[in-house]
C-alpha cells in the first residue's frame, strides 16, 4: 500500500498551496458578498499579477517577492477602476448583464496578455529557490511555505481590518444590508470601490506568491477561477472565513488526490468531495442554513 509518510507530505504540500487558494477565493467571495457580483475575471487578475511578477523579477534579476509591493497597489487600483467604470454603471441591472461584463473583461484580459507576452508558458529566470527544510522528518519546500505564510498573513490582516476598522465595518454593513448602510450615511459607492480593489488585490497577492514555483500563460486564469469558485462555494459564497477554510480543504484534497489516484484524475476526487459536501450543506460550510 501507500507509504504513510507520503500521505503526510501530501497533506503538508496541499495545505501550503491551499493557503494561496484561500486568499484567491477570499477576493472572489468578498466581491460577491458586498456587491452581489460574480467576478469571472478573477483568474485573469491573478494572471496579470503573475506576469507583472515575472517581468519585475526577470528585468531586475530580483527575487519575485519584491513584486508584492508593486502588485498590491497596482491590482487594488485596477479593481477600483473596474468597479468605477464597468460594474458601477450596471449595478442595478439584472445579474446576467454583470456576468457578461466580467466575462467580457476576462476574455479581453486574456487576449491582451496574449498580445503582450505571447502564448507560451513562462516561468521565472532568476535562479529558482529550490531549497527545502526538514520538519519532523518531512520535506517541506521553502517557496511553498513562504507562499502559505504570505497568503495567510494577508488574509489574517484583511480579517482584522474588516472586524476592527471603521472602513472594514462599513464594508460588512454594506454586505449585510445595502439600504441600511445608505440610510446611516455610509457612502456606499465608495465602499464598493474599495471592496473591488481589495478583491482584486487578493488575486494579485496570490499571483505573486504562487509565481516562484509555478508558470504563467495568458490562459492560466481559467485553472484558478475554477478552483476559486469551488473554494468560495464550498465555504459559502460571501463568507470570508469559509473561503479561508475551503481553500485549505481543496488544497489538501487535490494534493492527496494526486498521490492516491493518478495525477490526471485528481480533479474527479476534488469535485466529488465538493458535490458530497454541498449535498449535505447546500449553502456551503459557513453559509446560512437553507430552509
Amino acid at each position: 500500500m501507500f507509504d504513510p509518510s507520503l500521505i503526510v507530505e501530501g497533506v503538508i504540500s496541499g495545505l501550503l498551496i491551499g493557503g494561496v487558494y484561500s486568499l484567491l477565493a477570499i477576493g472572489l467571495t468578498i466581491i460577491f458578498g458586498v456587491l452581489g457580483v460574480i467576478n469571472f475575471a478573477h483568474g485573469e487578475l491573478m494572471m496579470i499579477a503573475m506576469y507583472v511578477t515575472l517581468v519585475i523579477s526577470n528585468s531586475f534579476q530580483v527575487q519575485p517577492y519584491f513584486a508584492f509591493f508593486l502588485v498590491l497597489p497596482l491590482l487594488f487600483l485596477f479593481g477600483v477602476f473596474i468597479q468605477k467604470f464597468l460594474i458601477q454603471p450596471v449595478l442595478d441591472a439584472p445579474p446576467d448583464i454583470q456576468v457578461l461584463i466580467t466575462l467580457g473583461l476576462s476574455i479581453a484580459l486574456q487576449n491582451i496578455a496574449l498580445l503582450i507576452w505571447g502564448p507560451n508558458y513562462q516561468s521565472l529566470q532568476v535562479s529558482r529557490n529550490q531549497s527545502v527544510i526538514h520538519f519532523l522528518g518531512y520535506v517541506v519546500s521553502v517557496p511553498r511555505l513562504l507562499a502559505f505564510i504570505g497568503a495567510l498573513t494577508v488574509s489574517g490582516l484583511l480579517l482584522v481590518f474588516l472586524k476592527k476598522s471603521n472602513l472594514g465595518k462599513a464594508i460588512r454593513a454594506c454586505a449585510d444590508n445595502r439600504e441600511g448602510a445608505l440610510l446611516i450615511g455610509i457612502r456606499v459607492e465608495r465602499v464598493f470601490l474599495v471592496t473591488f480593489g481589495i478583491g482584486a488585490a487578493c488575486a494579485g497577492v496570490a499571483g505573486v506568491f504562487i509565481m516562484p514555483f509555478f508558470y504563467t500563460s495568458p490562459h492560466i486564469g481559467l485553472t484558478f477561477i475554477l478552483i476559486s469558485f469551488v473554494v468560495a462555494i464550498l465555504g459559502g459564497l460571501g463568507k470570508i472565513e469559509g473561503a479561508l477554510v475551503g481553500g485549505l480543504i481543496i488544497g489538501v484534497v487535490e494534493s492527496l488526490g494526486g498521490i492516491l489516484a493518478d495525477e490526471s484524475i485528481k480533479q474527479i476526487i476534488t469535485f466529488s468531495l465538493f458535490i458530497i459536501i454541498l449535498f449535505f450543506k447546500p449553502s456551503g460550510l459557513f453559509g446560512k442554513k437553507l430552509r
Binding site: 465595518k169 454593513a173 449585510d176 444590508n177 441600511g180 440610510l183 446611516i184 450615511g185 457612502r187
Partner: peptide, 28 residues
C-alpha cells in the same frame, strides 16, 4: 445623495429595520 441628506440631520428609521444581522449591537 442619501449620505448628504443624512449629514443634514434628516434620518430615517426604515420599515423592516434594515439592520446588519452579522454585526454586534455596539458595532452597529
Amino acid at each position: 445623495k442619501p449620505y448628504q441628506i443624512v449629514e443634514k440631520g434628516v434620518v430615517q428609521v426604515p420599515e423592516g429595520r434594515k439592520l446588519f444581522p452579522t454585526m454586534s449591537v455596539s458595532d452597529t
